Amino acid sequence: MTPQSLIISLRDQNPLVHCMTNFVAMNVAANVVLAAGASPAMVHAQDEIADFTPICGALTINIGTLSPAWAASMLEAARTAADKNIPWVLDPVAHFISAYRKSVAQDLMALRPTILRGNASEIMAMAGEAGAGKGADSGDSVDAAQDAARALAQKFGSVVAVTGPVDFVTDGTRSAQVAGGSDLMPKVTALGCSQTALMGAYAASGPAFEAALATLAHFKVAGTQAAERADGPGSFQMHFLDALAATQPENLAAAIL
């Protein structure tokens, strides 16, 4: 299955995606998933996990605004997804900034996410390497994180996506890079977090490596198109949603190196 065929499958299936994301990202992530052609649900109460997660096409977990109650829900949802063979995506936002956050991220990683998505500093730290991350922002290059990404993919059986100016994705054997986007993208809050949610939609529609690759390409293509119309970060966000909806299968190939 190719990224081009996956975007068609996603829009045909309109998969329901269980998005456990942070307070900052909820609205942005929901709009991104909707614009791309899938259906998001921002459910996080632990009492709902057993009923809700099994009916979803995929689960996505973003630990941006972590709390003990949310951590418990996330761990239960990840276990449920693993038990039911539901693909799930982990975004370990700034997991290196506190012992608590690191512990939760490691517990989630031990459950072997289908896809691990993060910036270079997050991926390097997950692999036990020293990095230069500052909060949720990466201080390391994507190139510097490639070996860590391959090691994590081989150890956990996960596809690992490293995001940056040129994205990198690997399953431990295969790898690919994705280019494009815009310098305005980091200036709009939660776009990275929303990419995790969209990655779940693609994972519900096809194989993990191709799902990660298609998501990265979809974002790069939409970012490039939105930047051509935007006057700044505010109008960029509006045009980005329009561009996600307008992206066609043939557009994705242009972003994949």
Score class of each variant (00 low, 15 high):
residue 250 E to L: 13
residue 218 H to A: 08
residue 212 A to W: 00
residue 223 G to Y: 00
residue 246 A to E: 14
residue 192 G to V: 02
residue 192 G to F: 03
residue 219 F to Q: 09
residue 228 E to C: 11
residue 237 Q to L: 15
residue 202 Y to I: 01
residue 240 F to E: 01
residue 245 A to E: 13
residue 235 S to H: 09
residue 231 D to K: 15
residue 203 A to S: 13
residue 221 V to L: 11
residue 194 S to V: 11
residue 224 T to C: 11
residue 197 A to S: 15
residue 202 Y to M: 14
residue 222 A to P: 05
residue 252 L to A: 06
residue 230 A to Q: 04
residue 241 L to S: 05
residue 201 A to C: 11
residue 226 A to M: 13
residue 214 A to S: 10
residue 215 T to Y: 05
residue 224 T to S: 15
residue 234 G to R: 10
residue 247 T to Y: 05
residue 253 A to D: 14
residue 230 A to H: 04
residue 211 A to L: 03
residue 219 F to A: 12
residue 199 M to E: 12
residue 254 A to D: 14
residue 214 A to R: 05
residue 240 F to T: 00
residue 222 A to F: 07
residue 219 F to W: 10
residue 205 S to D: 05
residue 218 H to F: 06
residue 225 Q to G: 07
residue 203 A to V: 08
residue 214 A to C: 13
residue 244 L to R: 00
residue 243 A to C: 11
residue 196 T to G: 15
residue 214 A to F: 06
residue 240 F to A: 01
residue 198 L to S: 01
residue 203 A to M: 06
residue 246 A to Q: 14
residue 217 A to G: 08
residue 200 G to C: 03
residue 254 A to H: 14
residue 191 L to Y: 03
residue 230 A to I: 08
residue 198 L to A: 08
residue 250 E to M: 12
residue 195 Q to Y: 07
residue 195 Q to H: 08
residue 245 A to T: 11
residue 243 A to I: 08
residue 230 A to G: 09
residue 222 A to C: 12
residue 249 P to L: 06
residue 212 A to C: 06
residue 209 F to M: 07
residue 244 L to Q: 01
residue 223 G to H: 00
residue 227 A to R: 04
residue 203 A to L: 06
residue 199 M to R: 06
residue 212 A to F: 01
residue 248 Q to T: 14
residue 203 A to C: 08
residue 240 F to S: 03
residue 196 T to A: 15
residue 236 F to V: 04
residue 239 H to Y: 15
residue 252 L to C: 05
residue 218 H to R: 07
residue 237 Q to R: 14
residue 208 A to D: 02
residue 253 A to L: 12
residue 232 G to I: 13
residue 231 D to N: 15
residue 199 M to S: 13
residue 245 A to M: 13
residue 193 C to V: 05
residue 245 A to Q: 13
residue 199 M to C: 15
residue 207 P to K: 02
residue 232 G to N: 14
residue 194 S to P: 08
residue 214 A to M: 09
residue 207 P to F: 06
residue 197 A to Q: 02
residue 242 D to Y: 06
residue 221 V to R: 02
residue 232 G to T: 13
residue 201 A to V: 04
residue 198 L to Y: 03
residue 227 A to F: 11
residue 211 A to N: 02
residue 201 A to W: 01
residue 219 F to E: 05
residue 223 G to P: 03
residue 215 T to N: 15
residue 245 A to P: 07
residue 207 P to R: 04
residue 220 K to I: 12
residue 191 L to A: 07
residue 245 A to K: 12
residue 229 R to G: 07
residue 197 A to M: 07
residue 199 M to V: 12
residue 217 A to Y: 00
residue 246 A to F: 09
